[in-house]
Design a protein around this nucleic acid. Structure first.
Lengths: 224, 224
DNA sequence: GGTAAATTGTATCAATTGTTACAAACACGA
DNA sequence: TCGTGTTTGTAACAATTGATACAATTTACC
């Protein structure tokens, strides 16, 4: 059997020993597919009825906008799975087209077989549930963030979150450039708003260190 | 054993027969808890190490903003589960405080026991995976939507999505008020933008019926 | 300590959207 | 048919942010 042990490093099979992995894959019905650079691994709209894991190489996920132009979404390196959110759920079609970046091998496990794996091994089950759940949590957070209208609100939310129980000073672990990226705003707009909030007595700011002056006032920003 | 058959209508146990459900719950270690109106079912920050399903009655999920004021997030009616995304994944703490709206009973299955159920019954496994995956898909869609900056882009995205393969006319199944809500903008702003796009030759609009005049031009709006 | 690169502060103007208000068109039941 | 409530069209002004440019400050490295 080919070099499956690399799969132990994938989020789905992590935590297994080589023996366990070997045993589980014995008698399992699966394929290993090879692709050359530029080959289409899956097309957008195709039914997702199998778990694909990149074994070697890397692939890119692309999307077509409505005019047919393709936009690159992300790169997926070995040994990571493709589109774990579309193997189950209401929408069982790949939302993206996946293209090989170089010589690629893909481990391809049909959905019924994978369900067997989930039932047979608690570690795999936990891994998979954790992976999807973590993603859901991440997306929820992101939406919460995007739903704040003004930059002031985003700043307030971010700082209060960072602060947690600490009452005084927060060291921001990002540059303004990065923060602006996270907030989805331009860097000067962020700096301007920080400046305003400083002048208006919300915070006292020394570069990366931000001190709360009036938490109450700041909380009110988030109430609209 | 109490009236567990109602659980068959919950997303987690749907598709099971009463016999199957009965067999699975025999020997299962679980609790049924009762709460009076106003009781706190779970507090925000509490560790989520069990699956809670509302068996009778309804509960509300609340969140504290940073100033301690509580905001109602949603109501959960029987027979639906609480916080399915936080039983697994990196963050295992409830993000919300759950309070009983009336007399409530909650079926409470410890995580290890629930993992047993997932392994023992393929239907439950599929139900649970489908539930989380569908939610992930929903959130992904929503984020894609929120990531469009201008109202024109949101309109273009929405209309092209609605149109699908149809080339001509779309009937919008919402009022402008509702659409504005979905887009996260004010109603007059939406109407204004629709008017502009009409004048500029993107669309021809008769109330709920919108006709594409220049799909190419519209696609270009989404390319920034 | 000095220099180049990175980071931050600030300013100006245009574009977009929110806010508020009111009129016009439509839908529906009496 | 006539009102009445809902939905849509439109307008004026304020607020917010994007875009762009450049100066000031800090940091890192030699």
């Amino acid at each position: 059997m080919a070099n499956l042990h690399i799969l132990i490093q994938s989020p789905v099979f992590r935590g297994l020993t080589e023996e366990q992995l070997g045993r589980l894959f014995q008698g399992l019905h699966f394929q290993i597919k090879k692709y050359a650079k530029g080959d289409v691994v899956v097309s957008a709209g195709e039914i997702c009825d199998r778990l694909n894991i990149v074994q070697h190489g890397s692939v890119k996920a692309e999307m077509n906008d409505y005019s047919g132009k393709t936009i690159k979404i992300e790169d997926i390196e070995a040994p990571n799975p493709l589109a774990t959110a579309f193997l189950f759920g209401k929408n069982n079609r790949f939302p993206v087209t996946v293209v090989a970046n170089n010589e690629v091998t893909i481990v391809c496990i049909p959905k019924p077989e994978f369900v067997h794996l989930l039932q047979a091994d608690r570690q795999i089950l936990n891994n998979y549930l954790n992976a999807i759940s973590t993603r859901t949590q991440f997306l929820s957070q992101k939406i919460k963030f995007l739903s704040f209208r003004t930059i002031r609100q985003k700043i307030a939310h971010y700082l209060l979150e960072q602060a947690g129980d600490r009452l005084q000073t927060v060291e921001v672990p990002h540059t303004q450039e990065q923060l602006a990226e996270i907030f989805g705003v331009t860097r000067p707009a962020l700096a301007r708003t920080l400046g305003e909030m400083s002048k208006e007595g919300y915070i006292d700011m020394q570069r990366r260190y931000i001190k709360f002056l009036d938490k109450e006032k700041m909380n009110k920003l988030l109430e609209s």
